[in-house]
Write a protein that binds this DNA or RNA. Structure first.
Lengths: 222, 222
DNA sequence: TGGTTTTTTTACCGCTTGGTAAATTTAGAC
DNA sequence: GTCTAAATTTACCAAGCGGTAAAAAAACCA
């Protein structure tokens, strides 16, 4: 017998029907990690519908039924990945210090986002895929988590502008542009590679973005 | 009998095995357009593998076998869309006039790209999907068509910079950033909508980008 | 070591997918 | 109207899909 999978991660609320045992074994942790790792590869490159459990099985070295022993289905794997992603994804924005030097804080935010695109390109593509398809599995999450954070950050930036510490700009669209320009290097990596095969590309990108946002945000008197 | 579809569009070179008749009938033109229209909807939202012929059939009002009478397969529909897209997609860059006023030319390019994201969001997402998945059906096209155009444009921009008409910037990454910021409004529309539901969003975006690139590119003496 | 639980495999299933063959209907030329 | 070619429908596959049942194997614990 014993047909019950160990279900969702303990810290999260238990949406599945399983017994939700609290202490995942060594094997469970290892195999769940293997599955998520392989799934990230597949989902980020093929999109949700394009990804298959067989691909994930092959990538993780486990059999398909074995994967379904650890996750209740394809969708649960995907949702787990997205939830894990969001925490890491929003971290750079949470690190913006309202008490810090405005221009420096924002330039460091840009640098952190760019670094994330380099270190976690698959996560960036996974996220892009989800949004591109209308965020069918993350819409509520965007409203509940992302929106308040962006609202707060926009207020902080507007405060800096009102205090004359930054040149006037629309805060929300500033944020959009930072996301767009940094994530572009991960999401459109193939295209970027074709057009700039230079080995110093990373450094050039960093310097360019620093210049871009310095010139945009630096207040009047230099 | 008469089992042969009319195959590819006449202007393009004939890659299919069909008889490739030169004069598409009224019905052929109408139905191929219907199919491509529906396919654009589906492919742009679901990605290549996520899209199904049944969805395209439903969207176009034709039966699935009838669709395969006009196109030799799912992939041919997709490739046809991508080829049609690329022409329209690169047009704004081709319109940059090397003889024009540099800053004005680039700001108008940004405005045109932004307008394209508004007028053709599905095309933008179709393209994004293709690149995101590693450009499996467009890699050669990028090399052959996109790269030369970008190379030329980069030379023009560098010329402007060397002549002191623009503040110094890396031309290629400038282009990347223009693509990223403008296409972001189409590709991440769901996210943008959640974070900025304002009805004046379009105008705000346009003003923001104008400010962004004016401050980046305006040469020293204002 | 023996018994129990967890983990993995084997063998499936029903459904959807892209695609085909051939018959049927429709449109166009005379 | 009639003949012919183009267009469409009907009836199908074979393969791949997510998922399941149950037996076998491995790990754990005493």
């Amino acid at each position: 017998m014993a047909q019950r999978p160990p279900s969702e991660t303990p810290p999260t609320d238990d949406t599945s029907d399983g017994p939700a045992q609290a202490k995942p074994s060594r094997i469970q942790k290892r195999n769940r990690a293997l599955i998520l790792e392989a799934a990230l590869d597949v989902f980020s490159q093929e999109g949700y519908r394009g990804a298959t459990l067989d691909q994930i099985a092959q990538g993780s070295g486990l059999s398909k039924p074995n994967i379904l022993y650890y996750f209740n289905g394809k969708e649960e794997i995907h949702v787990t990945l997205l939830n894990q992603l969001m925490d890491r994804w929003l971290d750079p924005m949470r690190q913006i210090d309202p008490q810090g030097e405005p221009l420096e804080e924002l330039l460091r935010y840009v640098a952190r986002k760019l670094q994330m695109s380099r270190d976690y390109p698959r996560e960036s593509r996974l996220f892009a895929n989800e949004i591109l398809q209308g965020a069918p599995r993350m819409g509520p999450h965007l409203e509940a988590v992302l929106k308040p954070l962006v609202d707060d950050t926009a207020v902080v930036i507007q405060g800096w502008i009102d205090a004359g510490k930054l040149a006037p700009t629309e805060p929300r669209h500033l944020i959009f542009s930072i996301w767009a320009t940094t994530q572009h290097y991960a999401d459109f990596e193939v295209q970027v590679s074709v057009l700039d095969g230079s080995p110093t590309r990373d450094a050039t990108a960093e310097a360019f973005l620093r210049t871009l946002y310095t010139r945009l945000l630096r207040p009047e008197g230099r």
